[in-house]
Write a protein that binds this DNA or RNA. Structure first.
Length: 826
DNA sequence: TCTGGCTCTATTTTT
DNA sequence: TAGAGCCAGA
């Protein structure tokens, strides 16, 4: 989270730095007089197994660590860094470590610090995106940007594309902001730009021609706004290095050890970046660097050049879950070919989970063909069985999860050691409803992020407009926020005026008096332009008394615009929460100032743009964490609840048509399973409400892949479908876990105790209850296997989705899907 | 210019 | 279901 730590510029760090500083020449240095691997009593090497030890100590141009889930790779990576520093083979400034999230980066930095104490400052440990922003801001001029360029997130991209599509009437060709953004992103991840794409495009296809025009305008708009999108951050850095060998040489010289975590999730652009950074520096360029005062002498080979940096990558193809974002596991499978002389180390021993959990994981992932066989094993014993539960619906499932969480908590497990995973964010609704009711303390990680809230984006747009006056998107966003009477007509007028006079939108605002608008509107525009101009003065280094910090600036624009005041005085009750959010933002800027006294507005905006879902995880929070399976990668919990293990959800139906989709979904399931240390719960629901409709769900195919003996079904799919098995958890809630457990137990004895997987599943599918075209009308009396008797109030929906609204005599009002509910007419 | 009400439609994962 | 777009009326 700190892209701003005191940073050694290449020129400053270069004052020394031979690869080996101590003259021992054995690469071990004074810390290791005997030179015998494994003999030294260094806390660095404590408790490592032979493979881990080798991964820490190996020295060579390239190292590939294939690290299964839970095999201690973070530990290996941090110790490898610490070892390089401790033996004085490298200075901190020569290390570049790339992690997947800012949180992982912060953790790694912290762990290196613990291992070494002070003396680890100056390393670059950050995400791909953060590192690239840092390089691009520094080298902005070469890249043809201003160093205060804006970073567009996916929402910004979509807004921009929406305008382009509208102006081109491209929706008639089937383009939406979403699909155009996806296509552009995909191309950028392959390092294609408009021109290279257009060269190979089929220009007789009007849709293709239209796409090229969209892509071209999008590129132009970003350029004009001095903005880059997420994908540009990587791509532009690669282009920069390729176009400016001098710039590239600076970073190639600087970073001597490059380490990349989660390498299986890198895309082509990221791969290319790593390649660029690890290339050697030619003798001529080394001469050039030296001529400008950069010290290179100690790094030079006899030929006069500087060898490429050593590269360590850690990854596991089985955990590749970002193919949809361009991740390419070939980066791992072809690593040895790309980097000849690579040493490969395999870490298979798992230190996280029980053997039962690992056996389930191995069995599941074994169904993916086209993978190198790898078996995780644990020395920690079998542990508890995996618990399975088939719920009647999503709320019932949530109730099961809540009950089990309370049981675990009652047995002494802390809430923060438990997590609930799901495939789609929409699934949080039922979970949250039940958790609130059951008073389970929880936190949704990711989801609608703080910085994505409209009012926060509004406030930030003010700051962005100050930092980057060319950012038309930010200006348009705040033009009428809060309401100033500047409508779409005026906005369009300003845009046309700017275009006609070859000036920026911001300049058009300053010049709005010559647009011939009404006096009130003109006054409003000028007022806004004035506030922004004044704010810009305040962060100018030449500002009398020194420039103001971020929180002072934010306070200034909030007051100048009236944004906060309007929300506070609003009658809309939601505006109160919005005002509080903005106040929270102000508090955050104060924290930021305190933690980063030397950082400015642009640094703050960068940090905000690049937060990842997992970054706002608070380990000390004392709450259960709810998150998507994607967010869960890299994390671990004592107890994991994997919910919604149903066909259509996991695997998600959207993945069905994608090449490699079901296999990637299986890896996602595998990632989820392997997050659990002690306890794993797999749950599904027979029906799930989606878009206001109730849909029948089938158990996920992946469940059959787990050996039956590993799962203890509290309620199996077959049981849930049988008449006496259907229990509403919500109904049994008052009896607590015991009641629910016993009642399912009694049903249990009537079924085969250890169902054979295949037949069990065949049954589960054929046994789905089917009432066919059972006719029900308002006034009919029905009997439900667990709710008892009741009266039908009305019937809604059609065909298989007909729903009976029933008032039960004792169980209250329920909505039942007629096709499958365990009911009969009486 | 703004608001309210109506209809329509699209529903995955994310730096 | 909910969010967005559209239209009519103030």
């Amino acid at each position: 989270m700190t892209p701003f730590d005191p940073d050694n510029t290449p020129a400053r760090t270069s004052s020394a730095t031979p690869i080996i500083l101590d003259g021992y020449g054995d690469g071990y240095g004074p810390g290791r007089p005997d030179g015998e691997p494994g003999q030294r009593q260094s806390p660095l090497l404590d408790g490592l197994n032979p493979q881990q030890l080798e991964a820490v100590e190996y020295r060579g141009p390239s190292l590939l660590i294939i690290a299964g889930a839970g095999s201690g790779k973070t530990s290996v990576l941090t110790r490898r860094i610490a070892s390089l520093l401790e033996t004085r083979e490298a200075y901190p400034s020569q290390i570049l470590a790339i992690t997947f999230t800012n949180k992982a980066a912060a953790e790694m930095r912290e762990r290196v610090k613990v291992l070494l104490g002070e003396g680890s400052e100056g390393m670059w440990i950050s995400t791909f995106h953060s590192s690239c922003v840092r390089i691009l801001r520094r080298e902005a001029e070469s890249a043809g940007l201003s160093s205060s360029f804006s970073i567009y997130d996916s929402a910004d991209t979509k807004v921009t594309l929406k305008r382009i599509i509208k102006s081109l009437d491209a929706d008639t060709y089937g383009f939406t902001p979403g699909n155009a953004a996806a296509k552009i992103s995909k191309l950028k991840n392959e390092l294609a730009d408009v021109d290279s794409y257009a060269r190979n495009a089929n220009l007789s296809d009007p849709q293709e021609v239209m796409f090229i025009e969209i892509f071209r305008q999008y590129t132009q708009r970003l350029r004009a706004a001095n903005a880059l999108d997420f994908d540009d951050l990587i791509g532009e850095t690669v282009y920069l290095f390729r176009a400016f060998p001098r710039v590239a040489a600076t970073y190639r010289r600087r970073f001597r050890h490059i380490l990349v975590d989660e390498y299986q999730d890198t895309n082509h652009a990221q791969y290319s970046l790593v390649r660029e950074l690890t290339l050697p520096v030619t003798a001529e360029l080394a001469d050039e660097l030296e001529a400008t005062g950069v010290h290179v002498r100690n790094l030079r080979e006899p030929t006069g050049g500087i060898p490429g940096a050593s590269l360590t990558v850690v990854g596991d193809s089985d955990q590749s879950i970002y193919a949809f974002r361009g991740a390419d596991t070939r980066n791992i499978s072809e690593f040895e070919r790309d980097f000849p002389g690579t040493k490969v180390i395999l870490l298979e021993q798992n230190y996280r989970s029980t053997q039962n959990i690992l056996s389930a994981a191995n069995a599941v992932i074994g169904h993916n063909f086209d993978r190198k066989d790898k078996k995780l094993w644990s020395a920690g014993g079998d542990g508890e069985k995996i618990v399975g539960y088939t719920a009647y619906n999503g709320h019932d499932e949530a109730q099961f999860v809540a009950d089990e969480i309370e049981t675990l908590h009652g047995a002494g497990m802390a809430y923060r050691d438990m997590a609930v995973f799901y495939r789609t964010n929409a699934q949080t609704r039922a979970l949250e409803e039940i958790f609130v009711r059951a008073a389970v303390p929880y936190r949704v990680v990711g989801g609608t992020k703080f910085y994505e809230r409209a009012e926060i984006k509004d406030a930030l747009a003010y700051l962005i407009a100050v930092a980057n006056p060319d950012d038309e998107l930010a200006l348009r966003r705040i033009l009428n926020t809060p309401k100033r009477g500047i409508g779409p007509a005026t906005e369009t007028g300003l845009g046309s005026f700017a275009e006609a006079n070859q000036i920026s939108f911001r300049e058009a605002m300053r010049d709005s008096a010559s647009l011939g608008l009404g006096q009130k509107v003109t006054g409003a525009i000028l007022q806004l332009a004035g506030v922004l101009d004044e704010a810009a003065l305040k962060i100018d280094p030449a500002y009398p008394g020194g420039p103001v910090n971020v929180s002072e600036l934010l306070t200034f624009v909030l007051e100048g615009s009236g944004l906060l005041t309007v929300l506070r005085n609003s009658r809309d009750p939601q505006d109160e929460a919005r005002a509080e959010n903005i106040e929270e933002l102000v508090a955050q800027t104060k924290d930021f100032n305190r933690e980063n006294p030397d950082a400015g507005l642009v640094d703050f905006l960068t940090q905000v743009s690049l937060v990842a879902a997992a970054d706002d995880l608070d380990d000390a929070s004392g709450t259960v964490s709810l998150m998507t399976l994607h967010t869960a990668k890299g994390l671990e919990y004592e107890a994991v609840f994997l919910t919604g293990v149903e066909e259509g959800l996991l695997p998600h139906q959207m993945s069905a048509n994608e090449p490699g989709g079901p296999a990637e979904e299986r890896r996602l399931f595998y990632v989820g399973i392997t997050r659990a240390r002690q306890r794993l719960y797999l749950s599904l629901a027979m029906t799930r409400a989606q878009f206001g409709e109730i849909n029948v769900a089938m158990p996920s195919r992946y469940l059959q892949e787990i050996p039956a003996a590993l799962i203890d079904w509290k309620q199996s799919p077959g049981m849930a479908n049988s008449r006496n098995g259907t229990q509403s958890r919500a109904l049994n809630r008052r009896d607590g876990f015991g009641g629910g457990f016993n009642s399912t137990r009694s049903g249990f004895s009537e079924l085969p105790p250890a169902p054979k997987p295949k037949t069990e599943w065949a049954n589960a599918v054929t046994q789905v209850r089917d009432n066919g075209d059972l006719e029900l009308a308002a006034g009919d009396r029905i009997r439900h296997s667990s709710f008892g008797d009741g009266r039908v109030n009305q019937v809604t929906g059609e065909g298989t989705k007909r729903v009976a609204h029933v008032q039960f005599d004792t169980a209250g009002a329920k909505k039942l899907l007629i096709k499958i509910a365990p009911i009969e007419k009486i």
